[in-house]
Each structure stands twice: as C-alpha cells, then as structure tokens.
Amino acid sequence: MRRFALIAVGIFIVWLALAGRLTLAEVVTGALVAAGVAALSRHHLALLDDIRLTPMLPVHLARYFWTFFIALVGANLDVARRVISPKPDIHPALVEVRTALTSDLGKLWLANSITLTPGTLSVDVVGDVLKVHWIDATPGRDMEHATRAIAEKFEARLKGFLS
C-alpha cells in the first residue's frame, strides 16, 4: 500500500508537470493513469521500500542535492582541466570501495552519485563493495584512506533517508 501510494503520487506529479495546466480533465485523467500504473508496477519496484518516509525527507533530499551539486560542478572543473591539458593528466586504476549502506536503493544511489563526482566512475556493485574506476590513483598514495573518502561524503547524506 505504501509502495502503491509512493508510485501513484510520483506519477501524478509527473503527469501534471507534463500536462502543464490544472484543468479538471487533466487532474482526473492523471489520477486514473497514476493509479493504474502504480497498480501494475508495484510488484516490480521493491526498491522503493528502502526510502524512509519521515517529515524530514524533504530536508534530507535538499541537503543531499546541495552536496551533490557542488560535487558535480567540481567534477566538471576537474574534467575540464584534465581534458584541456596538453598531455592528459590521469593516473587511472580500478579500486574497491566498501560501503556502509545496506539497502539496494542506497547502493544504487551512492554508485550513481560517485559516477557524477570528481574523478570516479562506478563500474560494478558486488555485495557491499563498489568497484570504482578512479582517475587519480597516483602511486604512493594512501589508497585505504582515499577510497573511503570517495564514498563517505554521500553516505552521510544518504543515511538520512536510506539504510
């Protein structure tokens, strides 16, 4: 029921956004379509159960997106610098990052955040280990500490609403 409500509300909001006007016809059709889609898809979206629905959810989401946005802009300045430099300034390696998040949605979200942040690209998730392609694995660096740092920032934010 919780899952049904979550999907239906989400679809309904997207419907209204795409319709672009708040007439009675749009609202009624939207509600019917949202209910229909939610009824059909709820068995396939077990992922949504991982979200903790609390009144604080919007605050957690806002804080997450703020952290994320800063990281995304930083990542792009980083990419810009490496792409423009005459000899591409990269020291890539595949590293493994252990995550403290346990839910599937949590790990998915973390992996995608890592992909869009400076120098890292998620390649695979096996159990609680993320395989990450890291562009700055300079020889002699403290790998243990550095790989923790890749995940920690987002984990702290995501733990507010995911496990």
Binding site: V83, I84, L121
Partner: peptide, 26 residues
Amino acid sequence: FLGALGIVRMPDVFNRLQAGTKAATL
C-alpha cells in the same frame, strides 16, 4: 563540447566515460 573533446582525447573507454558523462550531464 568539453565532454565530447574528452571522449576523443582520453586513452581508454573508462576514461572516456569519466569525461563524457560528467561534462555532458552538466
């Protein structure tokens, strides 16, 4: 443009993805 330049200049598929995804998304 920088993202597309990245996928042309970087040496392998992983580095091309790194440059391509981030820059094209932003």
